[in-house]
């Protein structure tokens, strides 16, 4: 088991990867990616029980589904740093003929990705299907998924949330990235959603909150607790309170960097705040 410092080091490198990827092609979504860097690193380094290599069916291991596909930079960086494909391939992000499409896909056969996402609101249903397949296969491993808070405005989520509780899908941990931001501003100004916790609970889920969603120790502790609550007849939801743009001071606490790349000067500042740890790709 890695210690917290090792995970911090990976996270610092992942932040560098994210910045460099979106800077190179002057497009992509750094804000939400940075906000979830600690979560992804914790998930792939510690929380999930993963097999070596990649096969689509993923029998005998935990699986992860990213529903808010626009945070592909953090997903790709962590997949590469976890050994699914060479880190050099991060150089091809969003370029013609790449496997690292703007939004994640299975179409080009990128190892680690099991479903396309980008059009929002679909990932919860897919994760539930994979969870049901695990049960049919007698596989006791878990399904993890990640969703944006703004993404919960898509109605399909609520079909899935109702189904999961109604049908006792208790081998899933769905995490909501609660950063309070979406493209047009704060979620409270775009479409106030009230208490997401109360809504999930009303639908019959067990809900856990991780107040410090950018603190690796807090994430590990919260997710371990979430795991202990699976298998008890109820789906488990984790509300992960994160800061968009975390780790790059001028990108934090704003929706301005949702879908905007840094310029050369901004890149230099951001990289200076996150010194190389594992080696740049």
């Amino acid at each position: 088991m890695a210690n917290t410092q090792q995970l911090e080091d990976i996270t610092t490198q992942v932040r560098r990867d994210i910045l460099r990827m979106v800077h190179k092609v002057n497009s992509g979504h750094p804000g939400g990616s940075l906000g979830c860097a600690e979560f992804f690193v914790s998930l792939y380094s510690e929380i999930m029980d993963r097999k070596e290599g990649f096969d689509m069916d993923g029998i005998g291991e935990d699986l992860f589904f990213l529903s808010n596909g626009h945070i592909s930079p953090v997903y790709y960086s962590v997949l590469a740093r976890s050994g699914y494909f060479p880190v050099e391939e991060l150089n091809t992000f969003r370029l013609l003929n790449t496997r690292l499409q703007g939004h994640p896909t299975t179409h080009e056969g990128l190892p680690g990705v099991r479903i396309a996402s980008g059009s929002l609101g679909q990932g919860m249903s897919v994760a539930l299907g994979a969870a049901q397949a695990k049960k049919l296969n007698g596989c006791n491993h878990l399904i993890y998924s990640l969703h944006g808070d703004g993404e919960l405005q898509e109605g399909q989520n609520w079909e899935a949330i109702m189904y999961a509780a109604g049908k006792n899908v208790d081998n899933i941990i769905a995490t909501i990235d609660l950063n309070g931001q979406q493209i047009d501003g704060s979620t409270d100004t775009v479409l106030p959603m009230g208490s997401i916790k109360a809504k999930f609970e009303a639908f019959g889920w067990t809900v856990l909150e991780i107040e410090e969603g950018n603190n690796i120790e807090a994430i590990l502790k919260g997710m371990a607790e979430a795991k202990s609550l699976t298998g008890k007849g109820k789906p488990v939801c984790v509300l992960l309170k994160t800061v968009m743009g975390n780790g790059i001071d001028f990108m934090m606490h704003t929706h301005a960097w949702h879908g905007k790349a840094p310029n050369d000067e901004q890149l230099a500042i951001g990289l200076a705040q996150n010194p190389e740890t594992l080696g740049d790709y």
Binding site: M56, G129, A130, A133, N137, E159, A160
Partner: peptide, 13 residues
């Protein structure tokens, strides 16, 4: 909509 998504997920496995 949920049915189509769940169906997609069931193929994984």
């Amino acid at each position: 909509a949920n049915m189509m998504g769940i169906a997609a997920g069931l193929t994984i496995g």
